[in-house]
Design a protein around this nucleic acid. Structure first.
Lengths: 341, 341
DNA sequence: ATGAAAGCGCTAACAC
DNA sequence: GTGTTAGCGCTTTCAT
């Protein structure tokens, strides 16, 4: 049954060494999987570790090795609501899950936008071995610079050229947006509006570009565009503005499912049927799209896998292994009732 | 890749001491806000710190002081989707925000349910000064025991008596559920069904209890209950099962907004109007309820404040200050269109 | 393959 | 008030 927790002080490496009858160096080697330890000695040490319940002291190890075994998850403050976005939430989850399998620890850092220097100091102050930056915000530029000093992996491509040379994991937003728009075109829709995302974020810019390419490629007009901030509320408002133009609209592509869900409400308000009057498609593949009425056709992003990929990339970067600057994850068009009757 | 990463030589306390013309001890005192330093010396040190851009080395500090300045945010693996729940997301955000103002660092720990020992070892291995456990899961019992060895603050009351003596922050779920149910009663509704939450979580149990109290108090029957797992999907399924009973239902209280949103879809499927045919109320006050159609009457929980309170409680606990075992946060009934025409 | 010794950067008594 | 002296627990040359 439940064994008692001995409130003794944490056993040290030295105690393990004594019990195993070897030196501290040997214990250290075993703990660090050094290949140069005789099997016999190794097992003796292992036994001592087990019976003592020894756990290496992180601080001491970090101090001696000059590595922290910590990676920061940088979340810009304004994006602290990052967690309100299911896509980001999944990315974080994927990264955390991957790291929990490694020796690394995940440090959540809320980057105050008022005092960016504080965050920089923290990151560069030898507190972490690397950083993961999740957010599509424009304000994240400042962290790009860290890249030359500290390994940093971004979620999503950098917005500005200045950040070139960054390591990042992303999906091909342009191609994916083109694909979903093409789906709408193939359905015979002609007046396809776009609810774009903020144009200070790559996801906003690229999805607009993809939509535009598909529209032009099909010889359709590409002037029905309204911008939103990726929230359901803005999606609804953008949809209303679009409808208020009084021009024909038989389909809408919203830059994420949250806005698409908002658009759905706005359409319902105006008594328009989906997909009868207007077909609606989103992006992300989150539960907003899954649970909306009707469920949304969307571009599924492998969000958890993306987070994992970011973490893996960072770990390899820290280890000094060669790493491709860019990793593109695949997307998938998921057709649901919002575009097909 | 020839993208070498060059760590800037972090200045040490010793260098600061040299530049300021004092001993390391004095620098240490200044850094730690000791009151026993002459203003003159203090400012000289401060100046040196600024010009050098000195940042204390956490590992060294931790090793010497035997404190880690780290608190763990324990997220049970199955609840890693915790981030998909806006309520939890806000709680985490609140805690992170509060801690970012302190000297503490937030360490995200995904607790694998397969190897709970690993997590225990980590937490008790001197890696953290305290832990925050967010989740309403039943499996969290295991962490309760830590309480006697490591300061731990839970989000939500413990489910079992075994965890008594835990420190936690919560809302009065029973009273809140009673309040929202009473609102439905006051509207003249008679056949008020409940979509309960998992009964292995306090939030599930307590909200059912509150509903039951209100129903009985009003002399109404309390047998229309179906259980869900707090997800929109389960909310919809529970609603369908309720309707399939073929008995009259003129109102539904769902134990969270996500399930209420699901219930809304199910009602729509069956051609029932809200609140005309059925009034619907939820719990949490998250964006599911805000953006649903119609918007949901709900019990607003101060989720971010709750997270902050947890963090604050933990910090005080670590500091050895006297702390109340329980902190109850206020809730508020928010009436929206889903219950009032 | 293994041990001895020298720190990693900082805090914490204890003197002065 | 400020400096001196020891370590905190571990990794890491460098011998052996």
């Amino acid at each position: 049954m439940t064994s008692e927790i001995t409130p003794t002080a944490a056993p040290t490496l030295e105690e393990v060494a004594a019990l195993a009858g070897v030196s501290r160096s040997t214990v250290s080697r075993v703990v660090n999987n050094s290949p140069h330890v005789k099997a016999e000695a190794a097992s003796a040490v292992q036994r001592a570790i087990d019976t003592l319940g020894y756990v290496p002291n992180r601080a001491a190890r970090s101090l001696a090795s000059r590595k922290t075994q910590v990676v920061a998850l940088v979340v810009p403050e304004s994006t602290a609501k990052v967690f309100a976005d299911p896509f980001f939430a999944s990315v974080v989850q994927g990264a955390a899950l991957y790291l929990s399998e490694t020796e690394y620890t995940l440090n959540m850092v809320i980057a105050s936008e008022a005092t960016p220097e504080k965050t920089r100091r923290y990151l560069l102050g030898g507190n972490v071995d690397g950083a993961l930056v999740v957010s599509h915000h424009s304000g994240d530029h400042s962290y790009a610079r860290l890249g030359s000093t500290l390994p940093v992996v971004f979620g999503g491509r950098p917005l500005s050229a200045e950040e070139d040379g960054s390591y990042f994991v992303d999906v091909d937003n342009v191609a994916a947006a083109r694909m979903v728009t093409q789906h709408l075109v193939d359905l015979g829709r002609q007046d396809i509006a776009l609810i774009a995302g903020r144009q200070d974020m790559p996801a906003g810019v690229d999805r607009l570009e993809g939509w535009r390419q598909a529209m032009r490629g099909a010889g359709l007009h590409d002037d029905m565009v309204e911008v939103g901030d990726f929230s359901p509320r803005h999606g609804a408002e953008a949809m209303r503005r679009l409808l208020d133009r009084g021009l024909p609209i038989d389909a809408v592509f919203a830059s994420n499912d949250q806005m698409a869900a908002g658009a759905l409400s706005a359409l319902r308000e105006r008594g328009l049927s989906v997909p009868g009057d207007v077909a609606v498609a989103g992006f992300d593949g989150d539960y907003f799209g899954e649970t909306s009425d009707p469920p949304l056709t969307t571009v599924m992003q492998p969000s958890t896998a993306l987070g994992q990929a970011m973490a893996e990339m960072l770990v390899r970067l820290i280890a000094g292994e060669p790493v491709e600057r860019v990793t593109m994850m695949p997307t998938e068009l998921v057709v649901r009732a919002s575009t097909t009757a």
